[in-house]
C-alpha cells in the first residue's frame, strides 16, 4: 500500500510538472506577452517599447529558463541598471547592497508564488482568500449533492423498472442535461426576478462572501449541486441495479433475509464502490461549475480569479491557479483509488 501511494504521488508530481509547463508555455507565447506588456504599460506602445519592457521584467529569457525560475529550480533573474538592481526575487528597485541580501531562488519550491499583475498583490494571499470562499461553496455543494444523489440512486436502483425508479431516473436525466449556466439562469428567473415575482432568493451572491445566508447562498449551491447530482445518481443507480441482479443477492433473498436487510447489509456496500470513485472524479467537473456559478452569481472566489487572470494573462496567478486545481484533481484521484481499494476487499491484498 505504501509503495502504491508513493508511486501514485510520483505520477502526480510528474503530471503537475507537465501541466504547469504547458500552462507556462501557453501564457508565455509571444502574442500573450505582448498583450501583457501593453496592459501593464500602455496600449499604444511601439514594438521596441514592448520588447524593452519584456526584457526589463525578465520575460525575454528562454521559456525553459523562466519556467525553472518560477519553479525555483533556477536562480531568479537580476538586472543591474543605474538606479539599482531589479530582479525576480527583489521587490521594486533596490540598491546593490540590499539586493545581495535577497534570496537567489524564489520559486514555488521556496514558497514564492509570485506577484499578480492583475490585482497588484501577492498571488499567495489572493489564492488563499479566494480559495477559502470557494471552499465554503464547495463544502455546501458536497453536503447537498452527495447524500441526495446517493439516496436517489439507491432508491431508484433498488427495484429496477419500478415507478420509483422511473420517476427518479427521469429527474436525474433531467438534471444531467442541464448545465449550470442553464439551470442557474432558470433558477434565477423563477426565484429572483420581478417578472415571476416569487423573489425568494437573491440573484447575486456577492454579499455571501461576508455573510452567507440561506437567501443569498442557496441558489449558487443548488445550481452546482443539481448538475453533478444527476450524474452521480445515475451511476449509483446503475451500480445498484447491477448489484441487485447479482447472484449473491439472490442467495440472500433465498436465505430468507428481508428486503430492507438485503439492501442495507448485502447490497449497499457493494453498490457504493463505483459511485465513490465517480464522486471523487467529479471534482474537475465541479471546478467548471464553480467558475460558471461564480460568474453567474458574482461570487468572488477561485473561479472568478481564474476568469480574471485568464482574461488579463496574469501569468503567475494563472500558474498558481493551475497548480492548485491540478493538485485538487490529482489528490481526489488518489483518494478515489485508495478508497476503492479500501471498499473492495477483493482488491485488498492480504
Amino acid at each position: 500500500m505504501g509503495l502504491f501511494i508513493l508511486r501514485r504521488s510520483g505520477v502526480m508530481i510528474l503530471t503537475a510538472l507537465c501541466l504547469t509547463f504547458i500552462v507556462f508555455v501557453l501564457t508565455n507565447l509571444e502574442p500573450n506577452l505582448e498583450k501583457l506588456a501593453k496592459t501593464q504599460g500602455n496600449f499604444r506602445m511601439s514594438d521596441e517599447a514592448v520588447n524593452s519592457w519584456l526584457n526589463n521584467n525578465g520575460y525575454g529569457q528562454p521559456t525553459v529558463v523562466k519556467y525553472g525560475q518560477w519553479l525555483g529550480a533556477l536562480p531568479g533573474w537580476t538586472r543591474t541598471t543605474e538606479e539599482g538592481v531589479t530582479g525576480r526575487c527583489i521587490t521594486g528597485t533596490q540598491p546593490e547592497s540590499e539586493a545581495d541580501q535577497a534570496a537567489r531562488f524564489c520559486g514555488i519550491l521556496q514558497g514564492g508564488w509570485g506577484y499578480s499583475t492583475r490585482f497588484k498583490d501577492d498571488v499567495a494571499s489572493i489564492i488563499s482568500v479566494r480559495l477559502g470562499n470557494t471552499g465554503y461553496l464547495m463544502l455546501w455543494v458536497l453536503v447537498i449533492m452527495v447524500p441526495s444523489a446517493l439516496i436517489i440512486g439507491v432508491l431508484a436502483g433498488m427495484r429496477e423498472g419500478s415507478v420509483t425508479d422511473r420517476s427518479l431516473s427521469t429527474v436525474s436525466i433531467l438534471t444531467t442535461a442541464t448545465p449550470e449556466y442553464v439551470s442557474g439562469v432558470i433558477l434565477i428567473a423563477i426565484f429572483t426576478s420581478s417578472t415571476v415575482g416569487l423573489k425568494w432568493f437573491k440573484g447575486t451572491a456577492t454579499s455571501a462572501m461576508e455573510n452567507p445566508t440561506f437567501e443569498n447562498f442557496f441558489l449558487p449551491v443548488l445550481t452546482i449541486a443539481l448538475y453533478g447530482m444527476g450524474y452521480i445518481a445515475r451511476m449509483t443507480r446503475a451500480s445498484m441495479t447491477e448489484v441487485m441482479t447479482a447472484q449473491y443477492i439472490r442467495t440472500a433473498r433465498l436465505k430468507g433475509v428481508s428486503f430492507h436487510n438485503i439492501i442495507l447489509k448485502h447490497a449497499l456496500r457493494n453498490a457504493l464502490i463505483a459511485p465513490f470513485t465517480v464522486i471523487m472524479l467529479q471534482f474537475p467537473w465541479l471546478l467548471n461549475g464553480v467558475v460558471i456559478v461564480e460568474t453567474l452569481f458574482n461570487y468572488k472566489g477561485f473561479g472568478w480569479i481564474l476568469v480574471e487572470a485568464a482574461g488579463n494573462n496574469d501569468i503567475e496567478l494563472l500558474l498558481a491557479i493551475s497548480v492548485v486545481s491540478v493538485v485538487v484533481v490529482l489528490v481526489t484521484q488518489l483518494i478515489s483509488d485508495i478508497g476503492y481499494v479500501y471498499l473492495n476487499p477483493r482488491i485488498r491484498i492480504s
Binding site: 467558475v291 476568469v307 491557479i321
Partner: peptide, 20 residues
C-alpha cells in the same frame, strides 16, 4: 490523464483566445 486533470475552463481560456 494529463488532459483530463486540466480544468476544462482553464484550458479553454488558455487556448481559445485571439492571441493563441
Amino acid at each position: 490523464n494529463l488532459i483530463l486533470a486540466f480544468p476544462v475552463i482553464l484550458l479553454f481560456y488558455l487556448l481559445v483566445t485571439p492571441e493563441i
